[in-house]
């Protein structure tokens, strides 16, 4: 279940005073640490404990335990249907979990919202929707603006700066269906940027984009890392993992291996992740969930 309203809902723990410095400039190191009211800064950006997710009695993710290191670019890699997107969505309460505990900077998601940014798959929204690129980026600020308050000029300027950083300033007023796939992805990234999160979860941001967009996105990820932010990226392109990422999670229903790319991204582990049939343990798991999970 998701927490909807309450003392830590919308407009949550954003401690920024209005009129503060333009928070859009990623070259300013991190968020002001004092701004995050009760986050434990020594706690990992994302900590998953014993998480299981099932769709209609079929386990999708099984027994996930993971602590993300801070300030790293982390790739989530695995075959189709391995549960990569589900891993991210389950962490953000977008799909229900059968069990498990998730903490962001030591806090449950409902209280850590302002510190977590999400970039969904491009196909997840209707690109015919009557909004401009600038509107979409501004939406990243709605939570911070809060209930019953209009979008102000300052918010739009932040959004425009953020579009500019992704080389999209000229397209700010275009209706979003008139953008190319790569440009649409950059709009999503600009929206993530304007959110000023400390941890980003991105679902296949590099899938189906042109070379220029890929470079722009990688550059942005590196700037995020340089300012101490953590980025977890669902990634499909194995050859670029070593070049782009510091850590990797090899996922196939369970975490096969996770850690620094140099240690973990080995042929044996890849074979285990992508290789053929389910292991005996997974089959047993499937049978078990089929027996016991609630309908």
């Amino acid at each position: 279940m998701t927490t909807t309203r309450g003392n830590h809902g919308y407009q949550a723990s954003e401690g920024k005073a209005p009129g503060g410095p333009a928070p859009c400039n990623v070259s300013v190191p991190g968020n002001d640490p004092t701004a995050s009211v009760d986050g434990n800064l020594s706690a990992p950006p994302l900590s998953i404990h014993d998480m299981t997710v099932a769709y209609h009695r079929r386990p999708v993710l099984w027994d996930i335990d993971y602590d993300a290191p801070e300030g790293k670019l982390i790739a989530v890699v695995g075959p189709n249907g391995a549960g990569k997107s589900t891993l991210i969505k389950a962490c953000m309460d977008l799909v229900p979990r059968a069990s498990g505990r998730i903490r962001f900077f030591g806090l449950p998601f409902a209280r850590a919202r302002s510190m977590v940014g999400y970039v969904p798959q491009r196909e997840s929204v209707d690109w015919d929707f009557p909004v401009s690129a600038l509107d979409v980026v501004t939406m990243g600020l709605y939570g911070r603006i809060g209930w019953l308050r209009p979008v102000r000029r300052r918010d739009r300027e932040l959004a425009r700066e953020s579009l500019d950083q992704l080389g999209m300033a000229d397209y700010a007023d275009r209706q979003i269906s008139q953008l190319s796939g790569g440009q649409q992805q950059r709009v999503f990234l600009a929206r993530a940027l304007v959110q000023q999160a400390r941890l980003y979860l991105m679902d296949e941001p590099l899938s189906g984009v042109d070379a220029a967009t890929e470079q722009a996105i990688i550059e942005l990820l590196r700037r995020f890392r340089a300012t101490g932010r953590t980025v977890i990226v669902v990634h499909h392109d194995l050859p670029t993992v070593t070049e782009y990422f510091d850590h990797v999670i090899l996922l196939n229903m369970r975490i096969v291996a996770a850690g620094p790319v140099d240690d973990v991204f080995t042929p044996e582990n890849l074979q285990k992740t992508y290789g053929g049939r389910l292991t005996l343990l997974d089959e047993a798991a499937q049978a078990l969930v089929g027996e016991t999970s609630p309908p």
Binding site: H8, G9, Y10, L94, R113, V116, P120, S124, V125, G140
Partner: peptide, 10 residues
């Protein structure tokens, strides 16, 4: 437009 983004921002 994007219920997941809305949810993510509370």
């Amino acid at each position: 437009f994007d219920p997941a983004l809305a949810q993510g921002q509370g």
